[in-house]
Amino acid sequence: MKIVFASDHAGVILKKEIIKLVEEMGHEVQDLGPYTEEAVDLSDYVYPAALKVATKEAERGIFIDGVGYGSALIANRILGIDAVVCQDPFCAKLAREHTNSNVLCLGGKIIGSAIALEIVKTWLTTDFLAEEKYIRRVKKVQAISEKHLKPLSEI
């Protein structure tokens, strides 16, 4: 699976650890930066990374900022992105099983690397439960997005 990464300065260190794990799991990684802890604006990195997921240049994205919510806020502005913030493996499991999320957002200031690595492992190895009730719910969310967000082809 091809996974695109992005962060801000608060997520750089954790991002490096997670990239190592993801590569060891056999996935292809693209890191869109930043690469140092010098202060940056999160949207400069998360927005291009989210576009890669939305256009299917990457199958999933993992974005890391201070608490995770900034990344999710930015990514979910794009049609085709279903970004979730997870702070434990149980949340990651449900985020894949119930919502078929394609972007995982983590908080580098609020979770340690050991729990972050477990969250990533769980999120990457859990499949969507393609049962009728989950399919119906995901389709309803997609319909809301399609009603209010522009397709990338129109931008």
Rank of each mutant, 00 (worst) to 15 (best):
I18C: 14
T36A: 15
A54S: 07
I115N: 08
L73G: 04
E28F: 07
L51V: 03
S153C: 03
D41I: 04
E37K: 12
E17C: 08
A83T: 03
L14R: 07
L32C: 05
L104M: 07
V120T: 07
I135K: 15
W123H: 15
D65T: 01
A143L: 09
K140P: 00
L21V: 00
T122K: 13
S101A: 15
K133M: 06
A10C: 13
L14T: 02
P89G: 10
A54L: 11
E97P: 08
A72K: 04
L129Q: 14
A114N: 13
S43R: 14
P48S: 14
Y47W: 13
L152R: 07
I19L: 13
D44W: 11
E118N: 14
V103Y: 01
P89E: 08
L117I: 02
S101N: 07
G61D: 06
V103I: 11
L32S: 08
H27K: 01
E57A: 12
Y35P: 08
T126W: 05
A116N: 05
V103N: 05
N76T: 09
V53E: 07
K52Q: 15
M25E: 13
L79A: 08
A83K: 11
I13H: 06
D127L: 09
H98W: 04
I111C: 09
E23K: 15
D8H: 05
V4C: 12
I155M: 14
V53F: 01
S101T: 03
V85M: 09
L106E: 04
